[in-house]
Computed example of a mutant assay.
Amino acid sequence: MDDLKSLMRRFVDEFQSQGDEAVADELLADTFRNHTAPPGMSPDKQGVKAYFAAFQRAVPDLHAQVHDMLVDGDRW
């Protein structure tokens, strides 16, 4: 479970907050599908990268933070 927690924190810290797209390329499968993609946004890995790139441009000091995490029914 610690591995899943570490991967998620890395995704949030390094990709969502810092904009490191290499992390998204590494952690998201090529077959990834975002089932909650905003209208007009591609639901694949490229769409997620484009979404957060736009977010980073709009909010350059963006800092995503995980407050609660649920893994297999366990809250962390």
Rank of each mutant, 00 (worst) to 15 (best):
V23P: 07
V66G: 08
A54R: 12
V71L: 14
A29L: 14
V48Y: 00
L70Y: 15
A53N: 11
A64P: 00
A37Y: 03
P43Q: 03
A22W: 02
S42I: 02
P60W: 08
R10Q: 14
V12I: 14
G73S: 01
D3M: 07
Q65K: 10
S17Y: 01
G40C: 11
G73I: 02
D68K: 11
A24W: 03
Q65C: 11
Q18E: 15
D2F: 05
H67Q: 09
D68W: 09
D61E: 14
M1L: 15
H63R: 12
T31W: 01
G47P: 03
A64N: 13
P38H: 11
A58S: 14
Q46T: 15
M1E: 09
A50D: 13
A64Q: 05
L62P: 00
T31N: 12
D68C: 06
D61V: 07
L27S: 09
F32I: 06
Q46N: 13
D2E: 15
G19F: 06
V66D: 08
Q16N: 10
D2Q: 12
T31L: 02
G47N: 08
P38M: 12
R33W: 07
S42Y: 07
Q16Y: 08
F15Y: 10
Q56H: 13
P38D: 05
Y51P: 00
D3Y: 02
G40P: 04
D30V: 02
K49Q: 12
P60H: 09
D2G: 03
A53S: 12
A24S: 07
D44H: 10
V12C: 08
P60C: 08
Q16T: 02
E26A: 13
F32Q: 00
M41E: 09
L7W: 06
A50W: 06
D68H: 14
Q65P: 00
D44T: 05
V12R: 04
G73E: 06
V66C: 08
D13V: 06
D44K: 06
P60Q: 03
A29Q: 04
A64D: 06
L28K: 01
P60R: 10
V71R: 07
V23E: 11
Q56D: 08
P43L: 07
Q16H: 10
R75L: 15
V59D: 11
F55N: 07
A29H: 09
D61F: 13
F32V: 08
A54I: 08
L27Y: 00
Y51T: 14
F11G: 02
F15P: 01
A22V: 06
